[in-house]
Design a protein around this nucleic acid. Structure first.
Length: 638
RNA sequence: GCCGGCGUAGCUCAGCUGGUAGAGCAGCUGAUUCGUAAUCAGCAGGUCCGCGGUUCGAGUCCGCGCGCCGGCUCCA
């Protein structure tokens, strides 16, 4: 006679053990219709699980976040079922749910996106059939017999603990699976296959190459449409397309993975760095610069030769081996060690916008997001152990200031000691506690990423969230317990003893190239005034007014604005259109009326036109907007 | 690096089963002088990614490279 406790505290008594579905129906028909699973004493289970004993029960409906994952897992099964029907020789491996959908790794002949529509058609049939999804539990031996011809499933079974194994069946398809699943395939209402690629069995390059087919699924067509619209929007914002359309940068075969910055791209670049320098000066940093080509022995000493050689570009000059720096730190160490330091100088905050090269695999290159040459907005902070907390806090506050200037929110993550690491337990504990204490002082939520630290120390990562809600890891603060040792860095303490400084590496933009790429997508190419390559364009309404337009443009230049004149013999409509398409934040039209009144007609990127704006009002507004680095594009909108 | 897709004018793309390259936009020239998202006309523009091969003949078929895109792995 089980008694069931519902989330609101209601107790329900049953004469015989009910299933989750029975419970739902006992509450309402609607609930029974929307229920996809249940949570039994905190564990997710199939809806048709029989509840034998007293338990806390929560019904999971299509509105609960867990439901989507459960349904997507079923969707992966539906896809696998469809693929098996169409490609009889295929062998299934694993098919998990991922952030935006699911995938299934299948050992089969390569397929392409052209095969998607027939797989989707087959899936549709399975969904329409509303096949019940049934769980069956068997002994491990039995499962092994069942899967005698499925090498991958056998391998997975071997790794599972002895005991019962669960199988899920829907119609002619059975798969080894932990579950839970939705009650029937009809719940997979709106789905779409998104991409296909190669992936290795167990992510091991020496093992079989599988086909990884990706898909996504939602409970309603509307949600699927919204997701596809999001993908469409992301595609429109693609920084590679916008970078070309706005003439910001380009890539060339002669230097794969290395960006060429055009004049307009450099304007943004410089604006980013001007701002960065302003903030760093205010935060007590000094700036340094170290060479990019350094001898092999330096890299041996720093440990890069042993640990990072694969990614380094090397060369031999006069029979001496050199490497192009993949990181700035060893150079920074030399600079620190070039003279004695007193405790009075610490913390010493040395920033460096360093150009580094890393030989990334050709297949991973991707616009500005993944390149082989990039600039890090690096800094190394040398300090005494009791300064750790305050210094880390200072870095976090600087991160926050800078990200907020771009309208970017961020998430924090603390990564602790990995398996392969150097240093003593005591050192790690001290370092990790230092970071944690700083995070706690800082007061924002943070996630712990166990075992994901660098081999030389723990770190805090900052993930920014862009306008589309996507996150990107940009900032990082890493405590380094190795380099000060290897380079024998010291400072003289108040008691005249030589001490080892603590050092952190940190970046805020991360890679300037990548950060710029993120900003292009974040702003969809519509840069705020302070970053816009061309801030204003002056359009004379006819050729007679061109000289006056040039005069106005000159005044804008004197006021510190980046302005141009479009005095081509084209229609005004055309010039307005082109200026809008270039996302120029201020489109200024001058005609007879403006010349006589000494005013401007101002069009902002929201398409709003304001006539009769006086020069004084214009300059006042625009200059303060730039000075404050404000983000709104409708900058005359009070 | 691996798997799949792609590579035709500055850009976006067309080019059927092999018969010797085409459009729109951009550019140039001229006309038009215009009040807030494309004025009109003419002209010019191509080692069809590269190198080999098959063929009487290759943008099209085959092989090998290179680059780009989507993933795998790693990371900023």
């Amino acid at each position: 006679m089980p008694t069931i406790t519902l989330p609101d505290g209601t107790l329900k008594r049953y004469d015989s053990p009910p299933t989750g579905y029975d419970v739902a129906q006992g509450i309402s028909e609607g609930l029974a219709r929307e229920a996809v699973a249940l949570e039994l004493d905190g564990r997710l289970r199939d809806l048709h699980t029989r509840i034998e004993n007293d338990a806390r029960v929560r019904l999971i409906t299509t509105r609960d976040p867990e439901a989507l994952e459960i349904m997507r897992h079923t969707a992966a099964h539906v896809m696998a079922q469809a693929i098996l029907r169409l490609f009889p020789g295929a062998r299934l491996t694993i098919g998990p749910v991922i952030e935006d959908g699911f995938y299934y790794d299948i050992d089969m002949a390569p397929i392409s996106e052209e095969d998607f529509s027939r797989i989707e058609d087959e899936m549709e049939k399975i969904v329409q059939a509303r096949l019940p999804v049934e769980r069956r539990e068997v002994a491990k031996d039995e499962a092994l017999t069942l899967y005698r011809d499925e090498p991958y499933k056998r391998e997975m079974l071997q790794d599972l603990a002895d005991g019962t194994i669960s199988l899920y069946r829907q119609g002619d398809f059975t798969d080894l699976c932990r579950g839970p699943h939705v009650p029937h395939t009809g719940f997979v209402k709106a789905f779409k296959l998104t991409k296909v690629s190669g992936a290795y069995w167990r992510a091991d390059q020496t093992r079989a190459q599988l086909q990884r087919v990706y898909g996504t699924a939602f409970f309603s067509r509307k949600e699927l449409k919204a997701y596809l619209a999001f993908l469409e929007e992301a595609k429109k914002r693609n920084h590679r397309k916008l970078g070309e359309a706005l003439d910001l940068f380009s890539f060339h075969e002669e230097a794969p993975g290395m960006a060429f910055f055009h004049p307009k791209g450099m304007v943004i670049w410089n604006a980013l760095l001007d701002y960065w320098r302003e903030e760093h000066r205010a935060a007590g940093y000094v700036e340094i610069k170290t060479p990019i080509l350094l001898k092999r022995e330096l890299w041996e000493r720093s440990g890069h030769w042993a640990n990072y050689r694969e990614n380094m570009y090397t060369t031999t000059v006069d029979e001496t081996e050199y490497a192009i720096k993949p990181m700035n730190c060893p150079g920074g160490m030399l600079l620190y060690a070039s003279r004695p330091h007193s405790y009075r100088e610490l913390p010493l905050r040395a920033a460096e916008v360093g150009l580094v090269h890393r030989h990334e695999l050709s297949g991973v290159l991707s616009g500005l997001f993944r390149v082989r040459a990039f600039h890090q907005d690096d800094a190394h902070i040398f300090m005494t152990p009791d300064q750790i907390r305050e210094e880390i806090l200072g870095v976090l506050r600087l991160d926050e200031r800078i990200y907020h200037t771009f309208g970017l929110d961020f998430l924090l993550e603390l990564s602790t000691r990995p398996e392969k690491s150097i240093g003593s337990d005591a050192q790690w504990e001290q370092a990790t506690d230092g970071l944690r204490a700083a995070l706690e002082d800082y007061g924002r939520e943070f996630r712990i990423n166990e075992g994901d630290g660098a081999f030389y120390g723990p770190k805090i990562d900052l993930h920014i969230r862009d306008a589309l809600g996507r996150t990107w890891q940009c900032g990082t603060v890493q405590l380094d317990m190795s380099l000060p040792e290897r380079f024998d860095l010291t400072y003289v303490d108040r008691d005249n003893s030589r001490r080892r400084p603590i050092m952190i590496h940190r970046v805020i933009y991360g890679s300037i190239e990548r950060f710029l790429g993120i900003l292009i997508e974040h702003f969809a190419g519509k840069f705020p005034l302070w970053l816009a390559p061309v801030q204003a364009v002056v359009l004379p309404i006819n050729d007679d007014l061109a000289p006056y337009a040039r005069e106005v443009c000159g005044q804008l230049g004197e006021a510190g604005l980046r302005a141009t004149v479009d005095d081509r013999s084209e229609s005004l409509n055309r010039k307005v259109r082109e200026a809008q398409l270039q996302y120029i934040p201020l489109i200024l039209t001058v005609g007879q009326r403006e010349r006589e009144a000494g005013s401007l007609s101002v069009r902002t990127l929201d398409g709003v036109v304001r006539h009769g704006v006086t020069h004084a009002a214009f300059f006042e507004r625009v200059q303060s907007h730039v000075r404050q680095r404000r983000l709104n594009l409708d900058l005359f909108n009070d």
